[in-house]
Measured scan of single mutants.
Amino acid sequence: NKSRCTICSKLAEIRHEVSVNNVTHKLCSNHCFNKYRLAN
């Protein structure tokens, strides 16, 4: 079950899903999750 990561755009296994204003951001790693948190 692979999806495209919101941060790095890599097609990968999604580890984190963050839902903001009915938009789901898919994040493939802790690294991308941290980058997402810093950016938002």
Rank of each mutant, 00 (worst) to 15 (best):
residue 22 N to C: 06
residue 6 T to C: 06
residue 2 K to A: 02
residue 18 V to H: 10
residue 21 N to G: 15
residue 15 R to H: 03
residue 9 S to R: 12
residue 12 A to K: 06
residue 20 V to A: 14
residue 17 E to L: 05
residue 29 S to D: 04
residue 6 T to E: 08
residue 27 L to E: 03
residue 11 L to H: 11
residue 1 N to C: 05
residue 34 N to I: 02
residue 24 T to W: 08
residue 32 C to T: 01
residue 31 H to I: 14
residue 22 N to L: 05
residue 15 R to I: 04
residue 12 A to C: 10
residue 25 H to G: 11
residue 30 N to M: 13
residue 4 R to Y: 08
residue 2 K to R: 08
residue 12 A to M: 14
residue 15 R to Q: 14
residue 8 C to H: 00
residue 28 C to D: 00
residue 24 T to G: 07
residue 18 V to C: 02
residue 5 C to W: 00
residue 39 A to E: 12
residue 21 N to W: 03
residue 6 T to Q: 09
residue 2 K to N: 09
residue 27 L to P: 02
residue 11 L to D: 14
residue 14 I to C: 10
residue 4 R to V: 10
residue 33 F to M: 14
residue 36 Y to R: 04
residue 9 S to V: 04
residue 10 K to M: 06
residue 27 L to S: 02
residue 3 S to C: 02
residue 30 N to P: 11
residue 11 L to V: 15
residue 13 E to Y: 03
residue 29 S to H: 01
residue 29 S to C: 04
residue 25 H to Q: 12
residue 6 T to L: 11
residue 1 N to D: 15
residue 34 N to S: 14
residue 11 L to T: 10
residue 31 H to Q: 11
residue 36 Y to F: 11
residue 29 S to T: 03
residue 10 K to Q: 14
residue 13 E to F: 07
residue 28 C to S: 01
residue 14 I to W: 03
residue 26 K to S: 11
residue 17 E to P: 01
residue 38 L to D: 14
residue 28 C to K: 01
residue 37 R to G: 12
residue 7 I to T: 08
residue 19 S to T: 13
residue 12 A to W: 01
residue 16 H to V: 02
residue 26 K to G: 11
residue 25 H to V: 13
residue 33 F to P: 02
residue 35 K to A: 14
residue 37 R to M: 06
residue 29 S to L: 01
residue 31 H to D: 15
residue 10 K to V: 08
residue 10 K to G: 06
residue 38 L to R: 14
residue 9 S to M: 12
residue 39 A to V: 11
residue 30 N to V: 11
residue 14 I to P: 15
residue 19 S to F: 10
residue 17 E to V: 11
residue 4 R to F: 04
residue 14 I to Y: 03
residue 33 F to S: 06
residue 6 T to H: 05
residue 16 H to D: 15
residue 34 N to W: 08
residue 13 E to Q: 04
residue 7 I to K: 04
residue 9 S to W: 06
residue 7 I to H: 14
residue 31 H to P: 13
residue 26 K to T: 13
residue 27 L to C: 02
residue 9 S to F: 13
residue 6 T to R: 05
residue 22 N to W: 01
residue 39 A to R: 15
residue 40 N to K: 13
residue 7 I to W: 12
residue 34 N to Q: 13
residue 28 C to L: 00
residue 5 C to K: 00
residue 12 A to E: 05
residue 3 S to P: 03
residue 29 S to A: 05
residue 26 K to C: 08
residue 31 H to T: 15
residue 25 H to L: 05
residue 33 F to K: 06
residue 11 L to C: 12
residue 10 K to C: 02
residue 34 N to T: 12
residue 4 R to W: 06
residue 9 S to Y: 09
residue 32 C to L: 01
residue 9 S to P: 01
residue 8 C to W: 00
residue 15 R to L: 12
residue 3 S to H: 12
residue 2 K to L: 08
residue 36 Y to A: 15
residue 3 S to E: 15
residue 22 N to K: 07
residue 12 A to Q: 10
residue 37 R to C: 09
residue 24 T to N: 03
